[in-house]
């Protein structure tokens, strides 16, 4: 591995670890969790959530 490649590799690892820590500290995944809570493992709930989500923005023309 050339020096340039080695530098790139270690930069990626360091950046990756820093970003993972920062993301954890900022509780970034909570944003995703709010969406996931609605669907969780319950398929019906997810389907309802998705359709409700879009229905509130634009009610369907057909019942």
């Amino acid at each position: 591995m050339k020096l340039q490649e080695r530098l790139f590799f270690y930069t990626m690892i360091l950046l990756g670890i820093t970003f993972l820590l920062l993301g954890s500290a900022l509780e970034e995944l909570n944003i995703l969790e709010t969406v996931d809570k609605a669907r969780n493992t319950n398929l019906g709930a997810w389907r309802d959530f998705l359709t409700t989500w879009v229905h509130t923005m634009n009610p369907p023309s057909t019942p």
């Binding site: 590799f9 990626m12 690892i13 950046l15 990756g16 670890i17 820093t18 970003f19 993972l20 820590l21 920062l22 993301g23 954890s24 900022l26 970034e28 995944l29 944003i31 995703l32 969406v35």
Partner: peptide, 25 residues
């Protein structure tokens, strides 16, 4: 996830970190 977090007004540190680590390894 990156798009969703960005559009929520936050920088996607964690999601990008996953890409950096998995790509590098």
């Amino acid at each position: 996830a990156i798009q969703f977090i960005l559009s929520s007004g936050q920088f996607p540190f964690f999601a990008l970190g996953i890409f950096f680590i998995s790509g590098a390894i």
